[in-house]
Design a protein around this nucleic acid. Structure first.
Lengths: 240, 240
DNA sequence: TATTGGCTTGTTGTGCACAACATCATTCCC
DNA sequence: GGGAATGATGTTGTGCACAACAAGCCAATA
């Protein structure tokens, strides 16, 4: 009975928060990967059925995602994925640029051998990506790279804020690229640029200068946004 | 009937979000002012009765406050106000120091005449405070001053993040001061220092250099934390 | 007397039913 | 025939009852 009590505790109490996090991360990744594109309506009942819970815990997740700016619930209408425009994201990018530099300044953590292996593995994934371009895999690799970089600081508030801003902006890339006329070439170019960035940063980490990592990352984010802006202005709105 | 419908709309639909914000801000201010001191248990039913709603909307507010780090809900125990220690807040302060400087850099807004009047009025409140010190009024003035400063940037994500970090740290001052042996003198000293800071910043704003405002604010936040740390180390833990 | 087991009490988490609300189609009236 | 009111339908917000859980109390027993 003691054991049964323990089991109950593990599956419901600790499992409750784990389940909450699991649903939250799942939905966040989906929104980020445009599996739930902007303006799509998420029905609470569908989500509840999918995750085998009631609407109540789903609503907790939706409230959090709404606070992060990824969703917006309107009474009587539905819960819709927020739309993103490149102009309204300029401020977020400006902030991300500054925060990127802080990661190398505030409580930097020199990665151990295990972390270094992760970085090298990600660099290998980039090399594969260059040989075999794929937008979804690119987006996922970009996301994983961000989380690795975010682990370079011990400043937890900074990590949390950077993560939040990343998920607010990362969607714009896939959205802009998808309506770009020369889609394939743009993807290939961006992947090559990204591969170089990862190589540069991994090299800087191997040297042990995390401040340089911050500088590289800062300039790359700024240039990435500049390219995005150029592409967005060069293509007519698709008003699909 | 048309009018009645409008009234219903105002009191329920738009009023719903307004009510949510009102409850949220009320609780946040109370926690910040130590009306709900750390480790106090907030009962959802009590709050529901006080604000004349059910537990459900209250829980939405509590979920948000938990996401901000001010509360922590534990199943079967209660919703308790998070405790704060000066050591664990060092990272938050490091980040606040950097963000303070960004307010003068990213999309600064030169205040109009109305805003200038607000700043001067707050300076007048500081002068009154020097003549008649009061810890609660000091905390409230500090809060209002922060919001005024936060309005100097048009970068909304920066505003939101700064606000969040402010409410995570502002409590530590009242908490530390309250268990300091020479409480009154410390309050008077801090109020005088604060009054000088406000005077300096208002002067910088009158000149029109918002970047200087950021620098002043940055150094003042850093020095404020240093003083706090010194006081905290100089007083034996009250383990009340 | 110390310890352990169950029990009681109080809290948050969950599920469900209904209200409030928005949207769209339909129908009635001009 | 056109436009506006009205009902149908689907959605989120709310209230309430109950389940899950933790902690403290108390008594029974070694």
């Amino acid at each position: 009975m003691e054991i049964a009590h323990r089991l109950d505790g593990e599956t419901s109490e600790k499992g409750a928060r784990e389940r909450f996090d699991r649903i939250y991360r799942t939905l966040r990744t989906r929104i980020c990967m445009l599996d739930h594109p902007p303006l799509e309506r998420l029905r609470e009942e569908d989500l509840a059925a999918e995750f085998n819970v009631s609407r109540t815990p789903i609503r907790r997740v939706l409230v959090k995602l709404e606070a992060e700016g990824l969703l917006r619930s309107v009474h009587g209408v539905g819960t819709i994925v927020t739309d993103i425009e490149i102009d309204s994201l300029e401020q977020v990018y400006q902030l991300r640029v500054e925060l990127a530099e802080l990661i190398g300044k505030l409580s930097p953590i020199m990665p151990g051998e295990a972390r270094m292996a992760d970085f090298r593995a990600l660099l290998a994934r980039c090399d594969d990506l260059v040989r075999q371009p794929d937008p979804r895999e690119f987006a996922r690799t970009n996301m994983d790279f961000f989380h690795l970089l975010n682990g370079l600081t011990a400043n937890e508030p900074l990590r949390e804020i950077s993560e939040r801003l990343y998920y607010q902006t990362s969607r714009i890339w896939l959205k802009t690229a998808s309506r770009f006329s020369r889609f394939t070439e743009m993807i290939e170019d961006e992947i090559r640029i990204f591969q170089r960035e990862v190589a540069d940063i991994v090299a800087a980490i191997e040297i042990g200068d995390l401040e340089v990592v911050g500088h590289i990352r800062r300039s790359h984010i700024a240039m990435s946004f500049a390219r995005l802006r150029k592409h967005a202005s060069g293509v007519a709105p698709a008003n699909e």
